[in-house]
């Protein structure tokens, strides 16, 4: 409890975070993440977030902001809690019975876990793309149209057609599938399926898109396409992406967050993380000493 209060004070004074700027921070886990976890007028902000699976704690006291139209990459060794943290942001973890999230998480200043926040409405604003492409076993058209239909975003067929077309175009898939919209989405190649899932996510015009290792099942060419797409999407959307590829994080993101065993060790400008990491754990990871 005492710790918490100290922390809160620290967060209120971002300058305090810079204290260790000059020498490498060598503490095992920093009390607060080093670097610049907080930004001015964030789209989403997370404060003192702890996540538990039953008795087991998976996320320890994470404080971080995601800026408007920012792409933030989350990296870290396997099992460090990146997916867990990401799934807490749009309450996907609600579906896991044993999972409990505490702390303050806000979207545009609204508390995500407040009683009056409807998780279904939240997920319409914070969309998600998963590690394994998971199109519905329906036609390509229906895959994209599903979300808009659910939320009543189109009143006429023509409107829906337009949403489907723009979403597929934005996802860079339109030219490949425009002649076979009535074929099953599961019949596409892995990379196409993943872009279809992205089209499905953006069809409901979410404000934030969460991506959990969207390219891990794809070949380099499909990966490149999706990376291009992320750069394109960041003009309109705020994006948080989990990735195992440091090159990818370096290519697509503005800021990078490094997680270690449930602790958010360092958040910094991407370039800085990969050229001059502040924390010794971050450095160890990016130089390949573990991970």
């Amino acid at each position: 409890m005492v710790n918490r209060m100290v922390m809160n004070v620290a967060i209120d004074m971002p300058a305090g975070l810079m204290e260790t700027e000059n020498e490498k921070n060598t503490s095992v886990y920093p009390e607060v993440s080093v670097g610049v976890p907080l930004v001015a007028s964030p789209k989403m902000s997370m404060r003192n977030v702890d996540v538990f699976y039953g008795e087991k704690q998976a996320i320890y006291n994470v404080n971080v902001d995601i800026g408007q139209n920012e792409v933030i990459a989350m990296i870290g060794p396997s099992g460090c809690g990146k997916s867990t943290f990401l799934r807490s942001i749009n309450r996907m973890n609600d579906t896991v019975d044993s999972c409990k999230v505490t702390g303050q998480l806000t979207l545009d200043g609204e508390d995500i876990y407040a009683a009056k926040m409807d998780p279904v409405a939240l997920r319409a604003r914070v969309g998600m793309v998963f590690q394994k492409p998971n199109p519905f076993p329906k036609t390509i058209y229906d895959n994209v149209a599903y979300g808009p239909r659910l939320h009543g975003l189109a009143s006429r067929r023509a409107e829906l057609d337009e949403i489907v077309e723009t979403s597929l175009t934005r996802a860079g898939l339109w030219t490949e599938v425009k002649d076979r919209l009535d074929q099953p989405g599961t019949g596409l190649s892995g990379g196409q399926q993943q872009r279809l899932c992205i089209a499905r996510a953006i069809a409901i015009s979410p404000e934030v898109i969460l991506m959990d290792e969207p390219c891990s099942a794809l070949d380099p060419i499909a990966t490149a396409k999706i990376e291009e797409l992320i750069a394109e999407l960041s003009k309109n959307y705020t994006i948080a992406i989990v990735t195992h590829s440091m090159q990818q994080a370096a290519r697509v993101s503005h800021r990078t967050a490094y997680f270690h065993l449930g602790h958010l060790v360092e958040v910094n400008e991407t370039e800085k993380v990969f050229t001059a990491p502040e924390h010794q754990l971050t450095e160890a990871y990016i130089t390949g000493r573990f991970g």
Partner: peptide
């Protein structure tokens, strides 16, 4: 039923009942 389908439906904002009925 693969959990990924459930995740997909929840991810685009289907309510629990809709996940069941539609997928």
């Amino acid at each position: 039923v693969p959990p990924s389908i459930r995740d997909a439906a929840i991810g685009v904002g289907a309510s629990p009942m809709q996940v069941v009925l539609h997928h």
